[in-house]
C-alpha cells in the first residue's frame, strides 16, 4: 500500500480516537464536578492543562468560564485538538483515502461530522452535554466496529490499529491525570469524594464493570490506577494498548525499530510500581509516558510514511 495512504489511515484512526477520548475526558470532569460539594469551586481549567491546551486557550479572547472552555474543547475550529477539529481531520483523512476503506464507514464518519458541525454553534450546555458527548462516543465505537467487521485485516488495518492504540494509550494517561488531580490536594471537605472521582473516571472509560469483574474489590485509587495502567485485558488500559500496538507492528514489513520503541515503553510501565504512584510522581510518570509515545510515533513516521529518495 502507498505510504501516503498508510499515513492518512493512521491519522484517521488517531483523530477518531481523539474525538472519542476527548468526549470521555469531558464527561469525567463533568460528572466529577456535579458530584463535588458546593463549597468547592469547580475547576474546568484542569481540562485545558491535561489536553496541553492552556496556552492556546489563553491566547484567545474570553474568560476561562465553563461555557468558554466547553466551546473551546468541543467546537472551536481554531483549537486543533477540539472535538470538532478532530472530526474534521478524521473526515478529511478518510475522504482522501476512501478508495481503501469500506464505503459504509465513510458514510458514518461523514454523518457524525455533519451532526457535530450542525450543533457546533450551540456549544455544550450542561443540559445536553451528556447526550451529545455520549452520542459521539457511541458513533466512534460504531465506526470502529464497522471497520473491524468489514475491512480486510491487511496492512491498512494494522495502520488503523496503530493509530487507534497509540492515541488511546496517550489519552488514557490524560484521563488518569484528570481523575487523580483532585486527589493530589485532598482538602478536608473533598477527601470523602476521592473514590467517587475514580468511579467516575472508570465509568467514563466504560471500565467500571470490567474493573469489578477483574479486581473484585471496591474502587480504591491504587487499584483503579493499577487497573487502568497495567491491565492487559481491559481494552482502554495502557498495557493493553501497548500490546495491541506491538501486535500490529509485528504484522507489518520493516517494523523492527517500531517494535523496539513500543517494547521500551512497555518495559517502563512494567517496571514501575503503579499502585504506589501519586501526586507529583504520578504526574511525572504520565508525562514521561506521553513523551515516549511521541517517540514511538516518530519511529512509525520515519519507517512507513516518509517517502524514500
Amino acid at each position: 500500500m502507498l505510504s501516503r495512504v498508510a499515513e492518512r489511515i493512521y491519522w484517521l484512526a488517531r483523530y477518531l480516537e481523539r474525538a472519542e477520548d476527548t468526549s470521555r475526558l469531558i464527561l469525567v470532569r463533568h460528572n466529577v464536578i456535579l458530584d463535588l460539594p458546593r463549597s468547592v469551586q469547580p475547576d474546568w481549567e484542569l481540562l485545558l492543562r491535561v489536553l496541553g491546551a492552556r496556552e492556546h486557550f489563553a491566547d484567545r479572547p474570553g474568560a476561562a468560564s465553563e461555557k468558554n472552555i466547553m466551546s473551546f474543547v468541543f467546537s472551536d475550529r481554531d483549537n486543533p485538538s477540539s472535538i470538532m477539529s478532530s472530526l474534521t481531520n478524521a473526515r478529511e483523512n478518510m475522504r482522501t483515502s476512501r478508495e481503501v476503506l469500506p464505503s459504509e464507514t465513510w458514510e458514518r464518519v461523514n454523518s457524525l461530522y455533519l451532526s457535530v458541525a450542525r450543533r457546533a454553534n450551540k456549544g455544550l450546555p450542561r443540559a445536553s452535554r451528556h447526550s451529545v458527548l455520549n452520542t459521539i462516543v457511541q458513533s466512534t465505537q460504531q465506526i470502529s466496529g464497522m471497520l473491524a467487521g468489514t475491512m480486510n485485516h491487511d496492512a491498512s488495518y494494522q495502520f488503523l490499529q496503530m493509530g487507534r492504540y497509540l492515541e488511546r494509550a496517550d489519552m488514557t494517561t490524560r484521563i488518569i491525570d484528570v481523575a487523580s488531580e483532585v486527589l493530589d490536594d485532598p482538602d478536608e471537605d473533598v477527601r470523602p469524594y476521592q473514590n467517587v472521582m475514580w468511579v467516575s473516571a472508570l465509568q467514563s472509560l466504560s471500565a467500571y464493570q470490567m474493573y469489578r469483574l477483574s479486581v473484585g474489590n471496591n474502587v480504591r485509587p491504587p487499584d483503579a490506577l493499577q487497573f487502568l495502567l497495567r491491565s492487559g485485558e481491559f481494552p482502554r488500559a495502557l498495557s493493553h494498548c501497548l500490546l495491541q500496538l506491538e501486535a500490529a507492528v509485528k504484522l507489518l514489513p520493516r517494523g523492527k525499530e517500531s517494535l523496539k520503541a513500543v517494547q521500551s515503553v512497555h518495559r517502563k510501565v512494567k517496571r514501575t510500581n503503579c499502585a504506589e504512584l501519586e501526586g507529583e510522581a504520578l504526574e511525572k510518570f504520565l508525562d514521561s509516558i506521553q513523551v515516549r509515545l511521541q517517540g514511538v510515533h516518530e519511529v512509525i513516521e520515519q519507517t512507513w510514511f516518509t517517502p524514500e529518495q
Binding site: 500500500m1 502507498l2 496492512a155 507489518l252 514489513p253 524514500e308
Partner: peptide
C-alpha cells in the same frame, strides 16, 4: 514505481 510501505 510507486512508494509503498514495502518500498518501491
Amino acid at each position: 514505481y510507486m512508494r509503498t510501505i514495502r518500498g518501491l
